[in-house]
Design a protein around this nucleic acid. Sequence first.
DNA 1: GGCACAATACGATGAATTGCGTATTTCGGT
DNA 2: ACCGAAATACGCAATTCATCGTATTGTGCC
Lengths: 215, 215
Amino acid sequence: MRPYDVHITEDLPRLAQMLREHLELSPDFRVSGLARNGRDLLEQLSAAPALPDIVLMDIQMPEMDGLAATALVKARHPQIKIVMATVFDDDESIFNAILAGADGYLLKDESPESLHRALLEVMDGGAPMSPAIARKALSLLRRAPAPAPAAEHDLSAREIELLEQLSKGLRYEQIGENLFISTGTVRKHIENIYRKLQVHNKLEAVEAARKKGLI
Amino acid sequence: MRPYDVHITEDLPRLAQMLREHLELSPDFRVSGLARNGRDLLEQLSAAPALPDIVLMDIQMPEMDGLAATALVKARHPQIKIVMATVFDDDESIFNAILAGADGYLLKDESPESLHRALLEVMDGGAPMSPAIARKALSLLRRAPAPAPAAEHDLSAREIELLEQLSKGLRYEQIGENLFISTGTVRKHIENIYRKLQVHNKLEAVEAARKKGLI
DNA sequence: GGCACAATACGATGAATTGCGTATTTCGGT
DNA sequence: ACCGAAATACGCAATTCATCGTATTGTGCC
């Protein structure tokens, strides 16, 4: 079995070097590159003859942080496993990392053995997380579906109808035909909807309406 | 350090016995009781002179299943750690277990060593999960389908990126800035997306992409 | 009755989008 | 080495949208 290629993305040279040394002690891994930030990583991946299996990603970095880089790398190369390794354990960082597509989330005080185990686990299709992170992820999950109530809005029933038509991607003219009103009226309704929802185009309006559960 | 008291809740006597034997091989744990189902567990906890530290909980059981029992135990005794140990790995079971308040979720094919590690981890404030479970939990958090169904589409990775930008309601110019390309290129990408998805405007494209799980 | 507001309708204008054609570069596969 | 696909980029024309203003009608409420 060939060793897994790991690309390290970390802006602190000393820490990057430490990680490299830890990983290279094992025949399971080969460090295929070091990047100083997200932009650096993307450039290196573009230029690389072969893609790494895993990117070990810091969050806080200059130029482009690990969250943005994670999203971009995942968009281009979904098969690359991305493991965040960072000191941040706040809910927002964790949640954003997961949304960005991270496959695992480790705290930097993990032992070399834990790191080793985590990287093998992620290549095995798992989602390694430091215990504290796993706990927070679960608590986020518990909370996630909760914030659904309230849904304060002051849209009229007619405006909701309009929104439903809008969400189908119809043109004003077609909406008017469907609702038996003129395109001018459609336009005015939509203006009012935009004002009430504080948005400025169809997509934002539909998005906002979905979030509020209006449609 | 006194051993942790573990209460096993499992309707199959042979499996319960196996778990007990595994745990009692270690000085870290003491099996404080065996329950056959959720109702049994609640009665035993009411009558017990001392509460266990951990409940190891099956899901499928007669009389009262593990999900209901978890919610009830957590309501009365929030300090008790509950670790699900089950053969079910479907999204709904996992999600319900987490909602019910489970602190960890293990698959029954875990090795005795993994079980041992998981129980120590949960007492340390962590949230042990089998790798497959952790992956699914992250998927649930992302509200994205597991990479199993391999959606049929012929969009390039770049086009998916464009779609994600589109879905935010951004204008071509802003999308170009975000992706470091000209508005002309944005336009051309979007033309290609429209052709491939057989749609004719942003809203329809985003709608189609959502249905296909591309974003 | 008078008020507020929803629903209806139209005009004008500039911004944004869509469709089509063309073109270069790069990269993977045969 | 060649081919096709993807990503990049620009121009032009037509359509559609967003935002402003203005106006009429109906309905519910005080």
